[in-house]
Amino acid sequence: MAALRRLRGSNNEGVLALVLLGLIVAMSIANPTFFTLNTGFSILRSAIVPVIFALGVLIVVITGGIDVSFAAIAIFAGYATVSFCLNAGFDPGLPGIFAIAIGVGASLGFVNGIVIAQFSLPTLIVTLGTQGVFFGAMYTYVGASYYAELPGSMAALATSNLLDVTTSSGRAYLHLLVVPVLLLCLLVAWVLKRTMFGRSLYAMGGDLEAARRAGFQVKRTQVSVYMLVGALAAIAGVIHIVLSRSANPRDLVGGELDIIAAVVLGGASIFGGRGSVVGTVLGVLLVQVIKNSLLLVGVPSAWLRTAVGVLLVLGVGIQAIAARRDSRRMRVIEDLDSAQQHEQKVGS
């Protein structure tokens, strides 16, 4: 029983893994072309950017907040970096490009963090506002034109593959960038589980006032969280530009729903205090597989957004219903406990 519970995971990661597995099996039976290395690799490739976004969203959601400006930050940071490099006519190399983008992203996140922490404002409204501000600022000050050419180092990365397998249905490529994403996942998981900073995020999500009283630096942590989200978003932004081999300022913004849905499906509680990296990655994969498989079975792409929306509502709904059922079950258990205690007392 205990082993079963561990398999289920504290945030139902086990259940999610089963659902994902079931979906893959079902899709493979329904459409044999689904179960190929090509599909698998392309789903992984399509999950690279969402996973990085989702890690950021996970961190905020654990603290009990929400950030909807991450896509705007990502494209701002990525596009501004590319635009700067192209206009200045020099290529600082990949580390340089990522460093510039992360600096821009963290600064934008700092704006979110300061506004939220200093004035204790609702996170959804603030980030909804800054999303517009960042996007508008990018159009006004950075530019709105489409770059079809990227700096050399980025263009080179675009075609780097980790695996290159020849299958019956053609060549299948696994993009090199899955490696840094995997490392990023491990890093975030380690931070969440093994650092006081990580634990303070869960504490704040559990009870903000209690966290303050316990001596956590709540405001400083909040600012760090939004800077971290900004930095992660910037990485995602650069990678998105690399993968699409062009810098389009109209990209990414509008796709926030997919990410938030994936994080919530992954077991992170929208009320804060719960969530894991494993669950989040599974959530992203689930959303990507569903989108992919819906396309394969011929569902028009317009319905994809509907499907993701339904998933989000389902995810939140299941959480709420489970919480309610747990509280009811607890009451019965407490009744039993007191009944047993009573019997012991009578017996002795």
């Binding site: 093994r194 504490a203 205090g273």
Partner: peptide
């Protein structure tokens, strides 16, 4: 009580002391 409902009893008991001692890792 100012406890954290989402954390375990053990974590609730120890966490504030860990904060007070200025630890970075957990």
């Amino acid at each position: 009580f100012s406890l954290f409902p989402n954390l375990t009893v053990a974590e609730n008991i120890v966490l504030t002391a860990e904060v007070a001692s200025g630890r970075r890792l957990y």
